[in-house]
Every structure is written in C-alpha cells, then in structure tokens.
C-alpha cells in the first residue's frame, strides 16, 4: 500500500488480463487466490507488464480463449509486446505472487464427475509451476516470488522502478 506513490495512474489488471506499458503506472491485481500475478520488467527501458493468470496451460483446452488466461500464452504475449516497445529479452526480469489454495474440502476428488481436464484444488501450485516453466523457456530470470499458502494477495507493480508490493489480510504488505 505504498501511499507515497499513489499519484501514478493505477491500472486494474483483472482476471485473465495482461497489461504492458512504458509509462510510470501502478499495475494492480486485487485479490489473487489461486490465480498468479506475473510482473515482467525491463529496468533499462522502464518497460513493464503485469499478467493476472488463471490457468496453467492453454493446450489443455480445445477453445482456449484469450491469451491472458494461461501461463504459457500470457507470458509470451507480454514479452512480445515489451519487445515491440523496444525491450531486449535479456533485460527482462520477472516477479510473481499468488497461487494459493483458498479452500480445502475433505475427500474432494472430482466434484464435477464429468469428462475433461479436472482442475481441482492444486491449481494454484500448478499455476506457479507453469509460470516458472514458461519463464525458463523464454530465458527470463525469476528474481522474486511470494506464492502458495492458503491466503489471498493483492499485487501492485510500480513500472517507474520495477518494485512490487504484495499485501494480504493476514500478513500485511511487503516488498518483493
């Protein structure tokens, strides 16, 4: 909740959206549960992007929909946009937060009893793994993360300097 920086425009990056900018903005994803917020930052050009990722893998769906929903497609799409704005791949660093498991229902296995990919309770963890895999493929170093657990997080990414503040009801705010 860095009050001293709130004069910058705040952009709300909602579920399954991503946003790339070369302006000094605060990119924010509120109330991340099993979703993962991934911030990419090029410190040389001050170009940044934030994705609010919902699911690990677009290839598990016949009609995947928008690129922002999935770890594999969202990160690639952000990198491409950053490169269009002038970033070089080797200058991009990543931070992420989220990927929690909010509810545990004892004995729950497949609540839907329908064929198709079952997402289940471990989705937060799988989102985190998928982000790491996608970053590795793109050779982007992950420099900080605050993931897992059973609590929600809000992520604020300041594209003026690349700093990220993660806040939760249980643990307050911390810099990432």
């Amino acid at each position: 909740m860095s009050e001293e920086k709130t004069d910058e425009e705040v952009v709300n990056v909602g579920v399954a959206e991503y946003y790339v900018t070369h302006n000094p903005h605060v990119l924010a994803s509120y109330g991340l549960g099993s979703c993962v917020g991934v911030a990419l930052y090029d410190d040389r050009k001050k170009i940044g992007g934030l994705a609010h990722i919902m699911l690990p893998d677009s290839k598990a769906f016949s009609k995947p929909g928008g690129a922002g929903r999935y770890a594999d497609t969202a990160i690639r799409a952000m990198v491409e946009e950053m490169e269009k704005l002038g970033s070089r791949r080797k200058d991009i660093r990543a931070k992420m937060a989220g990927g929690a498991c909010m509810f545990t229902i004892p004995g729950a296995k497949n609540p839907k009893n329908v064929p198709g990919p079952y997402l289940g309770m471990q989705i937060g963890e799988r989102n985190v793994e998928a982000v790491k895999k996608a970053l590795k493929e793109l050779k982007i170093p992950l420099v900080a993360e605050d993931t897992g657990g059973s609590y929600g997080r809000t992520m604020r990414f300041f594209t003026s300097d690349g700093s990220v503040v993660v806040s939760s009801i249980r643990f307050g705010s911390k810099n990432l």
Binding site: V15, Y30, G31, L32, G33, S34, C35, M54, L55, A100, C101, M102, F103, T104, I105, P106, G107, A108, P111, K112, V114, G116, L119, G120, M121, I123, G124, S150, Y151, G152, R153, T154, S168, I169, R170
Partner: peptide, 24 residues
C-alpha cells in the same frame, strides 16, 4: 452437497479460486 470448506480472506481471492475450479 459435499463437506464444506471455510475461508476468511479477500473476496477476490475466494471468488478467483472458485472461478478456476469451475472454469467449465
């Protein structure tokens, strides 16, 4: 109905968890 789970947290985080669970 199944056995219930309980959480006390941000509304967004709870909804987002359910959203993902029931994406179909």
């Amino acid at each position: 109905p199944s056995v219930p789970g309980f959480a006390m947290d941000m509304a967004g985080a709870i909804i987002d968890f359910i959203l993902v669970e029931i994406s179909q």
